[in-house]
Design a binder for these strands. Structure first.
Lengths: 192, 192
DNA sequence: AGTATAAGCGGAGGCGACTCCGTTTATGCA
DNA sequence: TGCATAAACGGAGTCGCCTCCGCTTATACT
């Protein structure tokens, strides 16, 4: 395995980022089979540039998804920096809901792209678990959250929002579900 | 399930047949990603006609494959009509080798098309087993072939030719393999 | 600062999938 | 045999994927 990849030239990096953002945007706005030309247009680059960065549709979809996951995970640390762990956790779960919404919008595009690059989901799952663990550990350390839960189980629970029926009430349903979960993670579960 | 499909108009049926033949021909000659326009051209029909009969690439590939299988199976009865069962079996296995060669040439096209219509292989397998059973039963009845073999096992054995390395010697290798199998099915296995 | 050059850009253009619709024709009926 | 019409034809046209290559520019080196 030879690695040593020299960093991208500044303009290339900028375009790459724009393309990833444009891709998620386009999939959300135009559906999963948005034309790649339209992604390039949104990003303000030529179609050639898109293809240099992502050799085919699947590569772009997977990369856009990975980008979302990275952002979600980075958010965990950011949120912790500015508030107590239980509040950070609450905020992060809302962020998680956004991520799920995006993932849903990618729909089939993601499903079929993932088929050609199967380990994606396994990896991203680990990343997300890691981010959540960060939050839980911080909460346990500061005494605001229980210290005896496995982030894997929490993910399993909140991932349930994936299956909530779509519609205008979705976000609200998600809100209630997440509150419930967070209450369960706090110290001093309310007596019934 | 409403069925009652009225038979195709004569010209439609003719074109359909031509298209199927052209498809196998084109996949053999131009590789698995032959342009559908070229299939239509070979068949001497317009591209519109192709699409009326087969709504997309996968449908055409699957249909062409199915067509091959039908022909292979029909051959069993035809061969039996003109010669003793053991000779018919010998001839049929040669025909089977042609079928495998064609199937190989369809390669990925078939693999991915089958993915979107998964029961194809299960069905065709049964068809082929049925055809072989016809030959074996005839042989058993007339006393030229053993009566105690399951066609499924025979298919498993001769399907091995699928894995023979490609090359100019392929057909010869196949020939020897098949002779061996047929000898095993005859009455009176040669003493060693 | 000036320059060489590797890295990157971008869009015209090729190609193929698939659609649309005006034209043709097989077929059933009088 | 002639006619009405549903069925089928076919190819021009649209659209999107992807490539190719001449031009631009960031970067490293002097």
């Amino acid at each position: 395995m030879t690695v040593t990849e020299r960093p991208l030239r500044a303009d290339a990096q900028r375009n790459r980022d724009r393309l990833l953002a444009a891709a998620t945007e386009a999939f959300a706005a135009e559906g999963e089979d948005a034309a790649l030309e339209s992604v390039a247009a949104r990003a303000g680059v030529g179609i050639g540039t898109l293809y240099r960065h992502f050799p085919n549709r699947d590569a772009l979809v997977v990369a856009a998804y990975q980008h979302e996951v990275d952002a979600l995970c980075a958010a965990a640390a950011d949120l912790l920096a500015g508030q107590p762990a239980d509040e950070a956790l609450r905020a992060w779960t809302r962020r998680f809901a956004d991520y799920i919404a995006t993932k849903r919008r990618m729909g089939n595009a993601l499903r079929s792209a993932a088929a050609s690059d199967s380990p994606v989901f396994a990896t991203t799952r680990e990343q997300i678990v890691g981010a959540l663990r960060l939050l839980l550990d911080a909460g346990a350390a500061s005494g605001t959250l229980r210290g005896d839960v496995d982030p894997r189980d929490v993910i399993r629970v909140i991932h349930g929002i994936w299956y909530l029926p779509e519609g205008p009430q979705w976000r609200e349903d998600v809100g209630r579900m997440l509150e419930l979960v967070i209450d369960g993670l706090r110290y001093g579960v309310p007596a019934r």
